[in-house]
Design a protein around this nucleic acid. Structure first.
Length: 207
DNA sequence: GACCAGGCACATC
DNA sequence: GATGTGCATGGT
């Protein structure tokens, strides 16, 4: 599956973002949201010099909400971003570098305690911003796995993550590329209404 | 206008 | 536990 996707789409260069903090903010903003809309919000944050933990922390809720408006759910996401930067202040004095020293599981559990950060957002932050080997599961990944009969319809997030851990070499660069490729093929062919005819994964079979 | 987007928390039964 | 709903902009 990986080989077909990589041949078809090439390297995805994820995650788009200049700093770790930008990646983390993007992970929250893209919750159930088109990435193009997130880009507009991030551009606004950059223009306002708000793409730093302390600067964001000090913004008023209404100012932050207006900056991230194009990403949708702006009231919800304002609170989630504030919860997150508060978490950074409390645990790491706002210094992302202090996060990097902590073990994977400890970080994941800490992130999941932040209201507004669920498993996908936590794992996106860990894989794409902090380079921990955790496979990110999203709606596309779920559809691709179930439609290829690789996992049952009722599979939980953890079950799907374990599936990748069991079948894919646990290397950060590989997890990074593979998940990005799943999103690329998902956007094109694995929407709620399947469009399988021209999918590069069509006809794959498993032993 | 319908559909959908790189989720998550919370209410209600 | 499981099922349903609110959150919101913007592109196709």
């Amino acid at each position: 599956m990986f080989d077909r996707l990589f041949l078809h789409y090439g390297p995805q260069k994820w995650w788009p973002g200049e700093t770790s903090f930008e990646v983390m903010v993007g992970a929250i903003l893209t919750q159930n949201t088109n990435w193009r809309n997130v880009e507009k919000a991030i551009a606004n944050l950059k223009a306002a010099s708000a793409l730093h933990p302390m600067a964001m922390f000090e913004l008023s809720d209404s100012s932050l909400a207006s900056l991230i408006k194009p990403a949708g759910y702006f009231n919800v996401k304002t609170k989630r971003l504030k919860n997150f930067v508060e978490f950074l202040q409390q645990h790491y004095q706002g210094a992302i570098e202090k996060m990097r020293e902590k073990p994977t599981l400890e970080l994941r559990e800490a992130l999941l305690r932040v209201k507004g950060i669920g498993p996908e957002t936590a794992d996106s932050i860990l894989l794409y911003a902090l380079e921990h080997p955790l496979f990110v599961i999203d709606a596309y990944t779920y559809r691709i796995l179930t439609r290829h009969f690789l996992i049952h319809e009722e599979a939980t997030y953890e079950e799907m993550q374990d599936f990748f851990a069991d079948h894919v070499p646990a290397e950060v660069a590989h997890y990074n590329e593979f998940h990005a490729l799943l999103v690329a093929v998902g956007k094109e062919f694995c929407r709620p209404k399947p469009q399988c005819e021209l999918c590069p994964l069509k006809g794959l079979h498993w032993d």
